[in-house]
Each structure stands twice: as structure tokens, then as C-alpha cells.
Computed example of a mutant assay.
Amino acid sequence: MLRKISQYYYLLFFSVAGFFFYKAVTLFPTEGVSALKYRFPSIEGFLPISALVALKSYLFSGIFDPVHPAGLTILILIILSAFLFKRGFCSHICPIGTVSELLYRFRKKIIPGDLLIPTWLGYLLASIKYLIALFFIKVILIDMPYDATWQFVQSPYNAVADIKMLKFFLNPSALTVKVLIVLIVLSLTFPQFWCRFLCPYGAFMNIFAFFSPLTIKRNNESCISCKKCDKICPSNLKVSTLNAVTSPECTLCCSCVEVCPVRNTLSLGSRIGKFTLTPFQYSLILLGFFIGGMIIAKITGRWQSTVLPELWQAYYPLVDKLTH
């Protein structure tokens, strides 16, 4: 229940944040820096490439991104959460994941039934997101020189990257519209299509989620093989055949635990030992981690940019001409 509340809250939050960001951008030419009061720093969570470059720059220089500090903070929190809590961010907070889930549920209410992708095809499709993620890891984390990362962080393009992102979605090309339509249709047809097969963010998180101490465990002795867990799993994992769900594709949505008809047959806990958590406890700890991390970021000056007003004043008039 707490997971659903979290999903709807963050979907609403980011929708409101997007609306106010649009307001900040449109009012800036007339109101100047005072319009930035409508810009929520959390909007920087939609600048993953900028944050990844800033992460490498930070690791080499020790200088936290002064332009989009919230973006770097969010990326660091996501990486740490993947290591500690697997991909709970995807099932509790990510608005794109929530929209994908809602689309599929909406379709099932109109046209009942599940359309599952064969396992072999699922592996083939999943390779797409890993290839995209590996591309960015190689280009940014491996090949990009440190000096180039710091230059990008300070570049005019990066200063208005959030504005360019907004303009991209407000004025999409014909190709972009076609791609979005295809993604919507696929999300209506197959559960969590974007998250499972195309999201490079998810693939990047899987690198750390693989080492997470948490997992879903199954008690083989009490299991009645009803396979309800298999049917409800959005990642199409065969939970009923596993002693422990070690796949990094598991987002710990705990749907399988909640649907299991036999008490304590499925449980969320540590890979080693008997430590267990209820789905509510897990959601509470996960959300507390993110909220606490953001509070610390605000206190330590790693959330709100102090240089952005000056940068917007300098580069806002050039936003359509700037390239990277």
C-alpha cells in the first residue's frame, strides 16, 4: 500500500514540478532571476547524462557540481539505493515506471489478459538497454578525459540543459512523436516494457543491484505452486521455481509477496541469515533513505544551485543556438 502511495505522490510531484518549471522558463524573459522560484531542483533528475559527467568530474576533482547539484545528488542516491535496496527506486519513485505500470493496468481493465514475451526474446530485448548503458559508461566514465568532464559541467550548454530538455518535449520532431506512440502501445501491451527492455538508467542500476544484500526468498516446503507470483511479477521472473530471486531485474515491488496465498512462503530479507522485512517496512526504509539523503544535501549545500541564476541570465537568450 505504501508503495502505491509513494508512486502516486511522486508522479503528482514531478508533474507539478514540470508545470512550474515550464512557468519558470516562460516567465524568465520578463521577470528575470525571480522566475527561478518556480524551478524545483528535483527537475535535474531528468538530466542523467549531465549527472553522469558531473559524477566523474566529482570523483577526480572532489568538486561537487555547482550548476546542477541536485542532479548529481539524485544520481548518487540512486546508485547507493541500488546497492542497498536493489531497484526499489524503479518500483517506488520513478514516474516513468509508474506511468508504464498504469498504462498496462488500464489496458487490462479494457482488454483482460496477459501478453507475455518468451524468455529468449526477453533476454534479446533486454540487451538493448545494457548496450545503451554500456555506451554511456564507455564514452563518459571510461573515455572522457577529466578535463573534458569539468569543461562540460561549466559549459553554457550544461547551464541550460534543463531548458533544452523542456523545449525538446514541447516541440517534438515527427520521429519523436512516432517513437513515443510506439512506446505507449508497447507499454499497453506488455508489462513495464520501457523499464524491462529499454531504460539505460535501469541497466546502470543493475550493476549495483546485483550486489544488493536484499532478495525475495521462497520456502519450497510451504509453496503450493499456484504460480500467482509468476503471473503478477512485472519483470516476468519465474519466482515459483527459485529459492531466492537474485536477478537484478527484480525491482522489489513485493507484488509476489503480497499475492502469495500461503503465509511466509515468500519473504523479503537478506541473502544470508534470517533477517526479514515486510513490504511496508521495506518501502518505509527506502523512502526514508531518499528523503533523508535530500535533506542532508540541502543542509550541506548540494541541492540548490547558487550559480544558476547568473548562468541563466547569460545563456538563456542563446539556448536555441547552444550545442554540445
Rank of each mutant, 00 (worst) to 15 (best):
M165L: 15
A203L: 08
I272S: 12
G122Y: 02
A82L: 11
A161P: 01
F60L: 09
K109I: 07
I285M: 09
T278M: 07
I295G: 10
R196I: 11
I117W: 02
W312A: 07
E31Y: 00
L322P: 05
I285Q: 14
T246C: 05
L102N: 11
G288D: 11
V177K: 12
R263T: 11
S6K: 05
E310F: 05
N171V: 01
L284N: 08
G202M: 10
F19V: 14
K37P: 00
P200Y: 07
A126K: 12
W150I: 12
L175K: 12
E249H: 06
F106G: 09
Q281D: 08
I291D: 09
T26Y: 04
L175S: 10
G32C: 03
E44W: 00
Y123H: 14
I74Y: 11
W194A: 12
I181P: 02
S100W: 00
L55D: 02
Y10F: 15
Y8D: 11
R196M: 12
A161G: 06
E310C: 02
V67N: 05
L11V: 13
F208D: 02
K217W: 01
L268M: 12
A82P: 05
F106K: 09
M294A: 15
L102W: 00
L134N: 10
L141H: 06
F46Y: 02
V307G: 07
Y157A: 05
I63C: 01
K167M: 14
L12S: 15
V99Y: 02
H68W: 10
L72T: 09
F106R: 08
L308W: 04
K217A: 03
R218C: 05
L287N: 15
I110W: 00
F85Q: 13
I224C: 10
F152Q: 05
N206T: 08
Y315E: 08
I5F: 10
L183A: 11
